[in-house]
Amino acid sequence: MSDNINFQDTENTNEWINWIEEAIDKKHIRYYEYVHFSDIKEIGSGGFGKVFRANWRKTEKYFALKSFFSLNNITTKEIVNEIQRQREIDFHDNVIRFCGITKLYSENEIDQSKNYLIVMEYADGGKLRNYLKENFESLTWNNKCKLAYQLACAVSCLHDEGIVHRDLVIVLILP
């Protein structure tokens, strides 16, 4: 499996699915059985799909599951793109970590198509915008400066790696 994929070369969704399946088979990507997730709750949505919070194997561990509205060439490429972006910045403490992938099999589909969900680190503080809206007045200026610095460092890391961000999710180490 090549780590360097030219997204212009492939126009067939099946080839992207094959890339994902090969990465799972060769253990380049950790695979999580969907049946081991419980207490699944929607926590947000974006341009490509929804995000859920899910408990892993009835432990204290939660993950974020990023779903996609439809599995077509564009979304399948986005899954691959997301995986590669996450692998490039996995070293930074303030950027949500990619953990692996899971599949939800649809009973409604005639072809039993696979719906991939990206498994990511769960940030229990929620979105920065909501956190600041709820806590801005109680934060000291020192706390606010630390949060701003963490945000700047995370964005700088992304830019240093040549990553263009859309739905930016950053982990804040709260005071």
Rank of each mutant, 00 (worst) to 15 (best):
T140E: 04
S106D: 01
I173Y: 05
I89G: 03
T102I: 03
C157M: 09
I101P: 00
R30C: 11
T76V: 10
N142Q: 04
D9L: 15
I40R: 10
H165R: 06
I40V: 15
R166K: 08
R97P: 00
L139I: 04
H28V: 07
E22H: 11
Q8F: 10
I83W: 11
A152F: 00
I5N: 10
L151D: 00
K114P: 04
E109D: 15
L65W: 04
K114M: 11
E15G: 11
N130V: 05
T102K: 00
C153S: 08
I17F: 10
D90N: 12
S2D: 14
S70Q: 15
K61W: 02
N94E: 03
E82D: 09
L147R: 00
N143S: 12
G47P: 02
I24D: 13
N108W: 01
E22V: 13
H165K: 01
I110T: 10
L147A: 06
C153D: 01
L65R: 08
C153E: 09
N73Q: 07
M1L: 13
Q8T: 14
S45M: 10
I118E: 01
V171I: 15
Y116P: 00
D160L: 06
Y149S: 13
I79N: 09
Y116R: 02
M1R: 14
T13R: 13
A64L: 02
L104V: 14
E42H: 06
E15C: 14
K66T: 13
I17E: 14
E134A: 04
L174K: 11
W141Q: 06
K27G: 09
A23N: 15
N130M: 02
G46V: 03
D111M: 07
G125Q: 07
E21F: 12
K146W: 03
N14R: 13
I17C: 09
F37Y: 11
A123M: 00
S70D: 13
L151Y: 00
A123L: 03
Y32L: 08
F91D: 12
L172C: 03
L65C: 03
E137H: 03
N135F: 06
L139Q: 05
N4Y: 13
K114S: 08
N94S: 07
I163F: 07
F63I: 07
A154G: 08
I17N: 14
F91C: 03
E15L: 14
H28F: 09
N81Y: 06
N6F: 08
S138C: 07
S138P: 05
S2I: 11
E60G: 01
R57G: 00
G47I: 07
F37H: 12
N130L: 08
L158E: 01
L168N: 05
E78C: 10
V169I: 04
N115K: 11
S138G: 01
G162F: 06
R129Q: 09
G47D: 04
H92T: 11
E21M: 15
S113Q: 05
D167R: 05
K133P: 01
C157Y: 05
K114T: 14
T102W: 02
E109T: 03
I110S: 10
L65K: 06
L172G: 05
C157Q: 12
F69D: 08
N108L: 02
K50F: 02
E15M: 13
L104I: 11
S156T: 11
L151W: 05
N135E: 00
D9V: 05
